[in-house]
């Protein structure tokens, strides 16, 4: 077999390992789904009346406004699971075993990323289902739905690699579960929950230029037909940059860190 075939087969093996982990440890997935569902219900039913009125509609208008942000919040929260499972591997002897075998070095990490993508898509699916149940009414065409899936996948890919790196540099599983938390805050400090033009000027500048805002705007435009504009390019560019940097960081620290 060639090197590429080895890399693919090793990554496939590691992916199967992560799928078994998902089955053996469902409580993690349930937790990653539970939090965004609670936030969705909380924001729609507690704040929705007031915020919806501010948007010039009602609670129903706010469900539509909120859902794209909650979907991103789901992805951002779910990558904490990635960081946790990577850190679990790193703190146990199994990584030494993998590193002393003649297998593709990064395949462990690739397995984590692929496994997490499955986990994230399960979470997004459930959260979207709940949103539809409580009144989310998207206008997207099948092609636009496909684009939504693509944007979410690109975002999940980027944030998962970032979480892999965070899981490797964490010195314990506890640290790994905390460090990705800032990602869950970013949808709040963007256009995820309220329009950025309602924010004070300093925060507004940050909110408009941070990477999550164009991603949310793209999702919102695709789902609700409000127009995507240039935010799609911006969103994909951010995803590409975050993926690339995180991949290099993860791979480098994996080789160094495991050598302690």
């Amino acid at each position: 077999m060639t090197t590429l075939a080895h890399t693919l087969s090793d990554s496939g093996t590691m992916f199967r390992r992560q799928l078994l982990h998902l089955r053996r440890y469902p409580s993690l997935t349930i937790m990653l789904i539970g939090l965004p569902v609670i936030f969705l219900l909380l924001f729609v039913y507690v704040f929705g009346g007031a915020v919806g009125a501010g948007l010039g509609g009602g609670r129903d208008a706010y469900v539509d406004y909120l859902t794209p942000g909650i979907l991103l919040f789901t992805v951002a929260g779910a990558v904490a699971g990635t960081a946790i499972s990577v850190a679990m591997d790193m703190t146990e002897g199994i990584v030494d075993r993998f590193r002393s075998m003649a297998i593709a070095r990064a395949s462990v990490l690739t397995g984590h990323v692929l496994g997490s993508l499955v986990q994230i898509f399960i979470a997004v699916f459930v959260v979207l289902g709940v949103a539809l149940l409580i009144g989310f009414r998207p206008t997207a065409t099948p092609l636009e739905w496909l684009a939504v899936a693509g944007v979410l996948a690109a975002t999940a890919f980027a944030l998962t690699w970032l979480a892999v790196a965070l899981g490797i540099v964490a010195d314990s599983v506890e640290t790994a579960s905390n460090t990705p938390m800032f990602l869950s805050l970013l949808p709040f400090l963007g256009s995820g929950f309220v329009p950025t033009d309602t924010m004070p000027s300093g925060l507004r500048v940050f909110a408009e230029y941070q990477p999550f805002t164009p991603i949310i705007e793209t999702l919102r435009g695709l789902l609700l037909g409000t127009g995507v504009g240039t935010s799609a390019y911006l969103a994909l560019a951010w995803c590409a940059v975050i993926s690339g940097l995180s991949y290099v960081w993860a791979k480098r620290t994996y080789n160094k860190r495991a050598a302690r």
């Binding site: 087969s9 199967r16 390992r17 982990h21 053996r24 002897g93 030494d96 002393s100």
Partner: peptide, 29 residues
């Protein structure tokens, strides 16, 4: 690496997997 095997002081096993799945993982790798 292809010629050696390592068993360290701390069990290098995947604790979430079963015994058979752990061995199967090694067979695949």
């Amino acid at each position: 690496r292809a010629a050696i095997g390592l068993t360290g002081q701390f069990a290098a096993v995947d604790k979430l997997l079963t015994v058979r799945e752990n061995l199967r993982l090694m067979a695949d790798l």
